[in-house]
Design a binder for these strands. Sequence first.
DNA 1: CGTTTACCGTTAACGGCGTTTACTCAAGCA
DNA 2: TGCTTGAGTAAACGCCGTTAACGGTAAACG
Lengths: 238, 238
Amino acid sequence: MPTTRRERMRDATLLEIKEVAREHLRVQGPSGISLRGIARDLGMTAPALYRYYASLDDLLAAMIETYTNEMCDAMEVARDALPADDLDGRLVAVTRAFRDWSLEHRPEFAMVFGAPVPGFTEPEEAGVQQAGGRLGAIFFALFIELWRRQPFPVPPDEEIPPALRRQLRLFATACCGEDDDAPLGVIRLFAGSWVRLYGLVAIEVFGHMDFMIDDMNPLFEAELNDLAKTIGLKKDLP
Amino acid sequence: MPTTRRERMRDATLLEIKEVAREHLRVQGPSGISLRGIARDLGMTAPALYRYYASLDDLLAAMIETYTNEMCDAMEVARDALPADDLDGRLVAVTRAFRDWSLEHRPEFAMVFGAPVPGFTEPEEAGVQQAGGRLGAIFFALFIELWRRQPFPVPPDEEIPPALRRQLRLFATACCGEDDDAPLGVIRLFAGSWVRLYGLVAIEVFGHMDFMIDDMNPLFEAELNDLAKTIGLKKDLP
DNA sequence: CGTTTACCGTTAACGGCGTTTACTCAAGCA
DNA sequence: TGCTTGAGTAAACGCCGTTAACGGTAAACG
């Protein structure tokens, strides 16, 4: 372990900056994250932070990456709490974990899944993309394994327009690496499910239905049930 | 028409401010909207703008309201381009218009449908909520009228959990005013469809799939086809 | 060991921001 | 005509990100 004392100190500061930034995010919102404010809380001056992050954008990008991975961790914990052969249960658990984490970390969710600000937090960072792929892979691996063990009906290849086929292949390789030997229909259904889940959670987290609905729980559970039904999960969700 | 000369001048300035703000939004992104910058472009000083908008937030809220209504206008134009009895066609046209407008107005879409910034552009403005209701109503009116004329299968009331029933009623009244005498199943299906559409367009506009997929058109059309099928539209979409 | 080097932090400064206050000045109205 | 109203100004306050020049200290090296 070649970590010198200096490196340990540096890593600690690197982390502490991110933690203070997160607190500011949660208390004052995304626009409340400022290098000067963070430096104040840390008993430093703002220019000192440039030793650790090249710019505010860089810090924000690091935060996005951290949050994405944290969300993935939470989903994996929920997944691994169930036996490996209970794919049904695992898929439902991961989906619920996705929503739960998002609701408990609304500002973080907004940074990860909200609108990217041009010239600001561009998601072109390698780390951010990699974390995004990890998230997709968690869902995808379960989804595809479930289909292999107990196949549910998927649209036949002929029903999928050629233009869509190519996109689905791209999607699968980005999610899962190279072993994308699953039929296109499975990927098609997966993409549709992901879009639905994202829409549901984003609407809830962003509060776009707050003035119409006062409790999103029933709708989420109903949609989850629908989703489960289309992939052959028979038993009622607990 | 009690518009004095002063009032006309005032309204013109009010509008001009919003227009310059929009240009800044499109060129430099949301964080590029600044009172000082707008004032510069207008040949004024920043404090003068406070005669027109109480704060930057107020201006942003006005922009959101404007964009929502503009999107609704575009949808209504697309709707009215088809004969009133072609409900199938109108629903598809409105849906495509929603997506098209969003893709052509990405920064505007982000302001309307992205994450609200706390203490900043809260969507608690009456005008913003009203515009949101208008958008929902456009979809809802077509959806429900279509079901009345050529009913498609919807989940029976007994299958809808009681907790969800109440939320769906709230949702319908917010979308459509008081004449929500449609069966819960129709509203249930409508809510699900809206969530799907939102997720699809938001993912595309925000570019959350850009690193996986290079053309969202096929997926959108496929999902639209699916949606159309569930509400009984038989003919292939042109 | 002493010396050099690399790194961490500072102060000072530039230009930008939202917002408030006190003020001027012209248009509108009685 | 004289008064009122409202649009616009300059100055100032306290934020912000970022850069440049500079000090000190701990690690690295001969």
